[in-house]
Amino acid sequence: MDYLFSYLILASIFVILGLSTNLLVGVVGIFSVSQAAIFGVGAYTVGYALSNDIMGFVPALALAAVVCLVLNVLITLPSLRVSGDYFVVTSFGIQLLATAAFTNWDAITGGASGMAGIPTADLFGLPIDTSLKTLILTACVACLACFAFRLVMRSPFGRLLMALREDELAVAAAGRQVLRAKVEAAALAGVFAGVAGGLYAVYLSFIDPSTFDLDASVLLLTMVVLGGARTLAGSIVGPFVVVALPQLLSLIDLPTAIAASARQGIYGVLLVAFMLFRPQGLMGRKI
């Protein structure tokens, strides 16, 4: 059971994170490769607050959400000046900067060797100390996040964001404030990523910079693109599939000698084939 639970817990955390990335990259079209950095800030915030007994889990999670909101707005602001491909470079730089901070700010983050022994979560005194309780908590938060995503996408705000991705000039010509809409989207995505980070920290009880590096950002994009950009179903399916992929691949019985390299190859081929034959993702609309 624990196996299934740990899979479901991590997948639901990545669903929340996937929604954040989907909102920014899929819906608004701000092609950020630094979302794992924001996720990391959320995780470190909660990890630090709980490890040093500064506050309880709920306020720590709220703090993480606020910190990530502000930070995500700040790092998304350059996208107003530089667009598309150029922002990828900017955001690549931000990701490297974040990894450097996680690695070198030893006093807060524990440096390269990470932060271990983060206490488990509690909800107003009720300890979340078993896999089942953690699953219930993360699943509830993930459902809440999905519900919020759905409300947004069906609202005029969602339509504004979709329009923004297609043509910023036309949005301005329709009398909308492009800057304000982007800031709002980044803020919302930041909250999602911060909450996901906090849940991740208390579940794994160990975090280190390698979990929030460029590879992680790319993996996150893979989840969103594979699931299907801009759709709620895509943000759910993508993380569930990608988190399961290494596990699924290990089911293929291969001689040990070649298993590792064969799996690496299969993984790559799967992704390429997938994008060739279903570029819109499993559940998505085309980009």
């Binding site: 919020a148 409300l151 947004v152 609202s155 005029p156 705000f157 969602g158 504004l160 909308r176 304000r180 809409a181 709002e184 989207a185 803020a187 919302l188």
Partner: peptide, 11 residues
Amino acid sequence: NQFGEEPLGAL
């Protein structure tokens, strides 16, 4: 003048 064209109202 649409309501819910920002996240707080929409949510």
